[in-house]
Simulated assay, not measured.
Amino acid sequence: MSFLDHLEELRWHLIRSTLAIVILASAAFLAKDFIFDVVLFGPKKADFPTYKLLCKVANSIGFKESFCFTELPFRIQSRTMAGQFSAHLWTSITAGFIVAFPYILFELWRFISPGLKTIERKSSKGFIFIASILFFIGVLFGYYVVTPLSINFLGTYQVSDQVFNDFDLSSYIGLVRASALASGLIFELPILIYILTKIGVVTPQILRKYRKFALVIVLILSAIITPPDIASQVIVTIPVIILYEISIYISKSVIRKQNKRLKKQKTKGN
Rank of each mutant, 00 (worst) to 15 (best):
M1W: 04
S2G: 07
L4G: 01
L4A: 03
D5M: 03
L7K: 01
E8N: 13
W12V: 04
W12P: 03
W12N: 00
I15Q: 06
T18E: 00
T18V: 10
A20G: 01
I21P: 00
V22K: 06
I23K: 02
F29I: 10
L30V: 12
K32I: 07
I35D: 08
F36Y: 10
D37N: 15
K45A: 14
A46L: 11
T50K: 09
L54F: 12
L54G: 01
C55E: 06
K56S: 10
K64A: 14
E65T: 08
F67C: 00
F67P: 00
C68H: 04
F69R: 05
F69K: 02
F74K: 07
I76G: 05
Q84W: 09
Q84R: 12
F85W: 11
F85V: 11
L89I: 09
L89V: 11
S92V: 10
F97C: 12
I98P: 03
A100H: 01
A100S: 11
P102E: 09
Y103V: 09
F106K: 07
F106D: 03
L108P: 04
L108M: 07
W109M: 08
R110W: 06
R110L: 15
G115I: 15
K117Q: 13
T118H: 13
I119H: 15
R121E: 10
R121S: 08
K122L: 15
S123A: 14
S124N: 10
I128T: 14
F129R: 15
A131Q: 10
I133F: 15
L134F: 12
F135W: 10
G138F: 11
L140C: 15
F141L: 06
V145L: 14
L149E: 06
L154E: 13
G155F: 08
T156P: 10
V159K: 08
F164G: 11
L169Y: 01
I173E: 08
A178S: 12
S179A: 12
I186F: 07
L189D: 05
Y194G: 00
Y194I: 03
L196P: 13
T197A: 07
K198F: 07
I199Q: 02
G200Q: 01
V202F: 08
L207H: 06
K209E: 13
K209N: 15
F213I: 02
I220S: 09
I220H: 08
L221M: 07
S222A: 09
S222N: 01
T226S: 01
P228I: 03
D229A: 06
V234S: 04
V236G: 01
I238R: 04
I241V: 10
Y244S: 02
E245N: 00
S247Y: 01
S247P: 05
I248S: 03
Y249Q: 08
I250M: 02
I250E: 03
S251I: 04
V254S: 05
V254D: 03
I255N: 14
R256I: 09
Q258G: 11
Q258E: 11
N259E: 13
K260M: 15
K260F: 13
Q265F: 13
K266Q: 14
G269N: 06
